[in-house]
Design a protein around this nucleic acid. Structure first.
Lengths: 226, 226
DNA sequence: TGTACATCAGTGAACGCGCGTTCACTGATGTAC
DNA sequence: TGTACATCAGTGAACGCGCGTTCACTGATGTAC
């Protein structure tokens, strides 16, 4: 069994800082518990508070119910994603190295925020419709920013805007699937990380070669203009 | 609230036939309940038996526990997938129409077996590791058969076997995502089926154009030969 | 600085509820003669 | 064909358990004077 998260020193902290920290501890407890593969809807309020080292009743000082906690985690995941994009943008990489560099940045992000990504990837098709919808919203936002970045960079100037977005959606869902596999407990073996990264890289390359050779057809253009 | 499934006439049926039918009714009840978006792990034995029109205790005449029911549904889904492939293979379609025809057959299958596909797509990243593993196994089997078919058809003769499999995996996961979206209650609107089908078709086209223009690099060949 | 009061994060006990599982049972189907 | 017995799918009551939620409470932190 997992140990309860240790309460760090609360000595010189203001009340608001302590409260923020406890809230964080609850969120982390939820992510930790999900690492054993039970999924967010498999969590109980009592489990989470126990893992966080609290009484069940204390939970209500921080969240109204479990769904609200889930939404907080979705927001955290969304911020992580947007930080990822910002990093790709700011690193000022020469265009020809752009894709390779982006992939490296993404992999590092997945490693550093394993549990948040696992949460997004599994709950995207998960049990709570509220959370599912919130993740879809974050995903849409991410896809929009990504396609804007690509337009600004002139990565695929021959693609119409809807096609570029479709490309981004495909990349993002592939990315989510890869993140889900990378955090699937039953796929965890020594060295499997590299295999999964290769697999993901290869799939991404297939998609990007497809984008490079894409030609808009009359059919798709007509559809896009509808 | 959903109505309990009506018990069909049991008049002239043998005991084994009745038992088989009840078992089927339990499976259908589970799929029906999941249609409201709660996920398999959100089901309770009591809910399922109630929906099937049975006492909770009667459940144990058919399944040892809920996981066993889940595994039965995975098998049912696997058979559905393999039937899909068989149909593509047998229809004896001229090669140039192959992909378009396959897509049509796939969409028809998703429509006819909505709930089974939804089950596979959501539980692939779901809460039970036993079920997740079983779905991954079915998926591997499906990918293997699909790549064998493609080799036999000579669809992408320039691709190495590992690359062909990677292509198939990408197509299959894209397909699963599309199926999940197509059965996501919060994406259900009039006409959304066509939009989703277009989206899926476009994504698939991107991938297949990528496959057509793929060139094996020394790097990937080296990796494959390891 | 010291004192009296307010705030509020966290406690611990209690509640009613739906859950999975068990058990002895009932009665229709199936079988042996 | 008729009878006596075996099988076993489905019943209904009961169980203990973990769940979410409530409540009056405690005691450290924060504030007004």
């Amino acid at each position: 069994m997992a140990e309860a998260a240790s309460k760090p020193d609360e000595g010189g902290m203001s009340r608001v800082a302590q409260k923020r920290q406890t809230r964080q501890r609850i969120e982390d407890a939820a992510l930790n518990l999900m690492a054993s593969g039970c999924g967010f809807s498999g969590l109980s309020l009592r489990q989470v508070t126990k893992e966080a080292g609290l009484t069940p009743a204390a939970y209500y000082r921080h969240f109204a119910d479990l769904d609200t906690l889930g939404l907080a985690l979705v927001m955290r995941g969304g911020e992580t994603l947007r930080r990822l994009l910002r990093q790709v943008r700011q690193d000022d990489i020469p265009p020809e190295r752009m894709l390779r560099a982006s992939v490296r940045i993404f992999l590092r992000h997945v490693q550093n925020h394993r549990m948040v990504f696992a949460f997004l990837a599994t709950e995207r098709h998960g049990a709570s419709s509220v959370i599912r919808q919130a993740i879809l919203d974050q995903e849409t936002r991410f896809v929009d920013e990504m396609s804007q970045d690509m337009t600004a960079l002139g990565s695929f100037p021959h693609l119409s805007e809807p096609t570029l977005k479709r490309l981004c959606r495909l990349v993002v869902t592939t990315m989510f699937n890869a993140a889900a596999d990378a955090t699937n407990p039953s796929l965890q073996q020594p060295g499997s990380d590299e295999v999964l990264a290769d697999e993901w890289l290869g799939q991404l390359r297939l998609v990007l070669i497809g984008a490079r050779h894409w030609r808009e057809t009359r059919r798709t253009l007509r559809r896009n203009n509808q």
